[in-house]
């Protein structure tokens, strides 16, 4: 009879502990690549006039009107979309990323020829749509549990001649230096982004390909579902980080 009392006391204790744990976790929560950039690069990203990615956003805005997207969508309705991608495509019941969705609209709803995935037009449209979510927190699509699981397995799998997993660099050694490069936590919240090394805007898949080739492994073929699965995991791992598109990275 008397026993529930102390137990409730104990569970409140545990609850408090759990809260403290959650706070601790928050304190050690995901850090955007932005945080570890030099002040100069951060300033470049912050100032729309000096951020070269904004040229692509402007180009994307023009394409959005010129290519007929505006016939069905408003720019305002695009706010928040990128923050919850990749998403589940209802028709195929498969995960789809933002560029994949735009390609679907163009090819299936407009019956127009495909745009090359990494070409300037698709990058600009994706940057424009994603830019509408700048400042909003990433909210992983709860329906993508299976893809996230696959993505996490890919993230933890050692690969390539150097036999390294993504996790060995981005979880275990983030903040350390790989020769001259600071290893970031590897978050997807700025894409498409302007990378100084590329001297161009590029997609998340291009970035992932760089890392895959960096460990001398065979990159997945362009557009492969493995990239979307990885992205689904990366987004869950980065939950709560703010969309930065178009970000700058070194």
């Amino acid at each position: 009879m008397g026993s529930p009392r102390p137990r409730r006391g104990r569970s409140r204790w545990l609850e408090a502990l759990a809260c403290a744990g959650a706070l601790l976790l928050l304190g050690a929560g995901p850090r955007s690549g932005y945080e570890t950039m030099t002040p100069q690069l951060r300033a470049m990203q912050d100032d729309d006039l000096s951020n070269p990615g904004m040229l692509a956003v402007a180009e994307g805005e023009a394409l959005f009107a010129r290519e007929g997207c505006a016939g069905c969508h408003t720019a305002e309705a695009m706010r928040g979309v990128a923050a919850r991608y990749p998403a589940l495509d209802r028709a195929s019941q498969a995960p789809i990323d933002l560029s994949g969705r735009i390609a679907q609209c163009r090819e299936k709803r407009q019956q127009r020829p495909p745009l090359p995935r990494e070409g300037p037009a698709m990058l600009a449209l994706t940057a424009f749509v994603a830019h509408q979510s700048r400042g909003l927190p990433l909210q992983p699509d709860p329906r993508l549990a299976e893809a996230r699981r696959q993505g996490e397995a890919l993230f933890r799998e050692r690969r390539g001649q150097l036999n390294l997993s993504c996790a060995q660099c981005h979880d275990d050694n983030a903040g350390r230096r790989l020769a001259g490069s600071l290893i970031p936590e590897g978050h997807p919240n700025g894409y498409p982004l302007y990378r100084l090394e590329w001297q161009a805007l590029g997609s998340l898949q291009r970035r992932l390909r760089n890392c895959l080739v960096g460990v001398r492994s065979e990159p997945f073929p362009p557009g492969a579902p493995d990239y979307v699965a990885l992205e689904a995991y990366l987004v869950a791992r980065a939950r709560g980080l703010l969309v930065e598109t178009p970000a700058i990275r070194p």
Binding site: E157, R159, G160, Q161, L162, L164, D172, S217, E218, P219
Partner: peptide
Amino acid sequence: IMPAYFSTEGLRHVG
């Protein structure tokens, strides 16, 4: 994390 410089044993998805 140091690569094995004289062994290809157990490597996967090598380019």
